[in-house]
Structures are given as structure tokens and as C-alpha cells.
Design a protein around this nucleic acid. Sequence first.
DNA 1: CGTCTATTTGAATGTACTCAAAAGCGGTGG
DNA 2: CCACCGCTTTTGAGTACATTCAAATAGACG
Lengths: 191, 191
Amino acid sequence: MELLKQNVAKHISLLPDEMERFCGPFILKEVKKKQFLLKAGEVCRFEAFVNKGCFKIFYLDTKGVEHILYFAVEDWWIGDIDSFTTQTPAQLYIEALEDSEIFFISKKDKEELYNNLPKVEKLFRIMGQKTCVALQRRMLSNLSKTADERYIEFITGYPKIAQRLTNLQIAAYLGISHEFLSKIRKKIAGK
Amino acid sequence: MELLKQNVAKHISLLPDEMERFCGPFILKEVKKKQFLLKAGEVCRFEAFVNKGCFKIFYLDTKGVEHILYFAVEDWWIGDIDSFTTQTPAQLYIEALEDSEIFFISKKDKEELYNNLPKVEKLFRIMGQKTCVALQRRMLSNLSKTADERYIEFITGYPKIAQRLTNLQIAAYLGISHEFLSKIRKKIAGK
DNA sequence: CGTCTATTTGAATGTACTCAAAAGCGGTGG
DNA sequence: CCACCGCTTTTGAGTACATTCAAATAGACG
């Protein structure tokens, strides 16, 4: 539970008692590689904090092509914010890329936290802001940069995550075919 | 002030007294067409609610090409959430596309609102979630769809906004050249 | 009416994709 | 320990999508 507590403490300060009440409803779960936490069509009734391992959050388009919205490793949060807040069927899949551990909280328990612990509003307000900032930066990067630049940006910006991924997954994140990524890598290597 | 009050009421319920305290720090400002609310390099020290008119929030890349992150018309909020929350120089520009009216609030006043009116945390938590959902949907759309599909999605999804924009601006939003947008329009018209 | 901006069009080019095939790599069972 | 299987990565040829540049046309506004 330490990692989760540290994560919360980065955003707000809680008294020891409050921290315990915050952590109470979280349940530790093991998730094996290739196991899904969410599939498109289901309603997302949870959020989770990654304690160990790695996940991909992705979308399958009408042609069956996979597009990765983001990767989540230790110290990140996962969930489909769209399905979770609107309680409509998800468009996204969440799948473990490694044997992983998460702290899981149900929508119901999270709502009780909002009511019982007002500081939690602030916590998730701040986390929402950070998510917006990250999405906004990625949006601008996708609009203004070539695939080469985005690839370099990704592997230098997140070297530790990149190491754990296959090029297939990195390509699905960058929005390019894996064959083309291979050619980009060749070009870069030749310098 | 009515439109702002209605906007807030969509997300949280405030007592009449609370609503007045909420509205207190907002200042009505007129913004003329082509006037900037923010330029890259400045630190964003405000947020604003659009009461009338239309704005574009955009990024100029290293080659001077404009990429529009979003348009804001009546009933939308504007600001550079990145620069605002981190208080670092903005990468974005915010410019009025029409003669407009906004309700302006400074960072300082907004922070006081958070302290004096706890429900405001919830309000902006919810608004942040909605912004994330919108950005996430756009991200997936950009990753998985062709320019043709994104154009049709935009003009059918936001017909009233699209009418108010030039094709130059729509192209900068879709992430394509305006010449290519012209060719897409021709192709679609011929059906 | 003249100027400025927006839109269209065409030709040449570049960026990225598809398809097919081969090569590499890691794990598993015999 | 080796052979095989499945998955990842690379490579090449042909194609599709989108850009650039240049020029012509159309609209909007003072």
C-alpha cells in the first residue's frame, strides 16, 4: 500500500487517519499477463492504481486495428474515464502486458470516498488536470510532428517504459504500422 | 451572468447564496475579433467562460504551422490548463474569432474559491473529467480515422460551430492542409 | 473599386500503409 | 539439448493518402 500512499501524498496532504480511511476500500488484486480488466461493451465500474506491472489501454477500430491510448506502469492510474463517468458501455480494452498487481476500487466505494472525505475531491480534481495536460500534450504532438519525431520523443521521454514494450505496441501507440516503425528505427540507427 | 450560472448548475447544485459567492470574482470582459487572450511564452494566470462569441486555442509548431487544439463558443470554458496549473510559460495562443464576451477569473481568485466554497472542487473535478473524455475521444478519432472521416465527424457533430469557421480553421483543427480539405469537400459534394 | 483573405485546382512529391515473405528470438516439450 | 512453434522484427515492392508549391478564382470588407 506504500506506493499508493506516496502517490496520494504527491497531490494532497492527508492526516494519518484520513489516509487509512482513503486506503480502506482499495483491494489488492493480481492480474496475470494477457488478462483483461475491461473489454469494449462492458460498463467500467472501477478504477485502479498500478502497484506492479504494466497495462495497455487501447481501442479496436472498425477494421480491428489496435490503437493504444496509453500505457500504465507502477504508480499510474487506470480506468476508462469515459465509461466510468457516464456508466455507458466502454469503447476501450485494458489488458495486462506483464504479471501485475493493482489496487482496485469500485465506483460505489469511490463515490463514498467523495462523500466521506472531501479532500478526495481535490485529489481527483488535481489528477484530472494532470491527465488533461498529458492528453493535450500528446494531441499537439500528434498534430504537429512526424512519426520519426514522435518515436524519438517517446523513447527519450519514457525510456524505462519503452524498454518493456514490443515495437508492435509502440507502433500502436504512435499511430503507425509496425513495418513503418521498423523502417524508422533502421533510419535512426544509421546515424 | 445567467449563462454561467446555468453552466455551473449543470454540474453541481449550489444554494442561491453560494452561487452569488461563486460568481463574485468573475469579471465580464469584451474581446474584439483577432484579439489575443494568451500568447505562447506568457504564463496563463486566468480561466474564462465564454458568454458570447468564439475563440480558437492553438499551437504554432517550429515551422510556424498552426494547429488548433479546440474551439470555444458560448457555454465553453477557455484557458491553457497546462500553463495555468504549472505556472510555466504557455505553448498555446488563445484568439477571438469573433467579437466576444467572457467572464474572466484570475488564478488567485479561483484559488480563493476553492478554499471558501468546497463544492467548487467538485465542480472543477467534474469539468476536468469531461475535458479528459473529450480529449480522449478526439485522440482515438485522430489515431483511427482518415481525414475524410474526421471531417464528416466534425461537421455533423458540431454543425453550429462548423458554420462559423473558415475551412482554413477547420483544416488546422483536423490536422490537414487546407488544400487537401478542399479536395475532400469536392469529393463529398460529388455524391 | 481595390485589397486582403479564403477557396479551389493541378502537378509533382513525400510520407506512411498494405501485402507478402523471410529472418530472428524465446519458450516449451520431447 | 535440440526441434519446433508462435510471435516479433525486418525488408521490399507497389499503392494510397496527404503535402507542397504555384496559380487561378471567388468573396468579404472598407
